[in-house]
Design a protein around this nucleic acid. Structure first.
Lengths: 257, 257
DNA sequence: TAGTGGTCTAGACCACAAA
DNA sequence: TTGTGGTCTAGACCACTAG
């Protein structure tokens, strides 16, 4: 008994996603037009249209009538993950973002980190710890581990110019993310770096990101509790033009205080 | 110059969404089949198919090949909002949910609450405050205000049997939600009700929900800090069968400790 | 003018459910 | 057997963009 083949529009979609993930098609590159897909794959135009239309809805490509279909920006791709870069967040508010690197170096995966990243204990990791500032006020302490084989040039980056997450996005579109949020009491180190009062609580976000189907990075993001909040807005899909309405789900926001 | 009419598949979608929102079509009700839409509206079957298929992707309807198309459960509808009922969360973990009502009554909107709900100061509100338990351990203090005109029977509910949010969902599909998460120090009342240590921080979720395009309820949800966390998982759309993969974005999870 | 995406049609074949 | 959704085709007309 032969297994039934996947629908042709689905094959087309997966083929194009694969070409994007592999880097063969880069952001802003042109994607084959509907008629080109008709010629090259033998499907009807409606089938090619469905494939490209769904890729557009899912945020993989941008389409412009009369012009063509293009691979979406990486920014848009991470939009799909509804997780934003803190530097972008700050600049979105019209404020100045800056970062101070505290630690940077190679590490061996501990038991816990190895488990989180699905790798062997002792595997090579890159580690960086830095403080993000908004208008020179510390707003986030980032403590991040990255698989060295995923991002060999990670430690060579100047993280005062590009955030770790931006570098990771630039290497490969992030495919999946997991995030845990909890309230904790900061330890001395965190409290000092974020200039927090002794009794002030701390919003801790632990985030894992995936690429190529594997977790590649885990980060602990500490935020000064009463000065910051995480906000999300959930809009109904399909209503009016609010396609892609789920875009800005998670964003960091200042709390007037 | 006449404005161009909306696409017919879009008109179909909006027409069906309207019939669901108005209550004419209720959860599990049958939605006209593709061929019925062809007969009743004169569109081709491909157009009817596109309308129903997109409504399915967006979570409004469930489709079963060989059977038919049906209005999705309200639970699924609020799934679209990626916000879950805490009772469902607890039961999903196989634990027992229970609730204790602390306060219940009519209130007049204060300046702040009135602003949040886009209503006049002094407008009639229903108020309830209750503690949710998981296996008899307090996990959430819910402090909620609801527009009285939206849910006239709100205060008549037995909140030990149905959560406030479940009652609101039952009245009308919630269309939109906004959520803010921050870490705070609990006041005496919260600390006592959640049986928290004196220095333990608190995860505070402030949530507004919309129906009929207007905010109808605002809730403050306090969680004992070190015992609970908010987790989110962001899956890639379109990959494999992970349609609707954005479903379980926000869920409450126990922290092993 | 040529190419693109946006939409729509009127058929078609299939697998599957329920009666 | 009938009706359902799932898919696919081979055309078509339109508005728009770019050269």
């Amino acid at each position: 008994m032969t297994t039934r083949p996947k629908p042709r529009y689905q094959q087309l979609k997966e083929s194009i996603i694969a070409r994007i993930s592999s880097g063969e098609l880069r952001p802003r590159d042109r994607v084959p037009s509907e008629y080109e897909l008709v010629d090259s794959t033998g499907v009807s135009r409606m089938t090619a249209n469905r494939a490209l239309r769904e890729l557009n809805v899912e945020g993989y490509v941008d389409r412009v009538a009369g012009v063509g279909t293009f691979v979406a920006d990486l920014k848009a791709a991470s939009h799909v993950l509804e997780v934003r870069n803190i530097a972008d967040e700050v600049e979105l508010r019209g404020h100045k973002h800056s970062a101070t690197v505290l630690r940077k170096g190679r590490r061996q995966a501990t038991k816990d980190t190895a488990a989180l990243l699905h790798i062997a204990r002792g595997s090579a990791l890159s580690h960086v710890q830095l403080v993000h500032h908004e208008n020179d006020v510390p707003i986030q302490l980032e403590d991040r581990y990255v698989r060295e084989d995923f991002a060999p040039q990670f430690l060579a980056q100047d993280f005062t110019q590009i955030t770790p997450s931006a570098h990771l996005s630039a290497i490969s579109p992030l495919q999946e993310a997991e995030q845990r949020v909890r309230a904790t009491r900061p330890d001395k180190h965190v409290r000092k770096q974020l200039q927090m009062g002794s009794a002030e609580p701390c919003l801790l976000v632990t985030r894992r990101t995936w690429a190529h189907g594997q977790p590649v990075s885990v980060a602990r993001l500490y935020h000064p509790g009463d000065r910051f909040e995480l906000t999300g807005h959930y809009a109904p899909p399909g209503t009016e033009k609010s396609y892609q309405g789920n875009a800005d789900i998670i964003e960091l926001r200042n709390v007037k205080k």
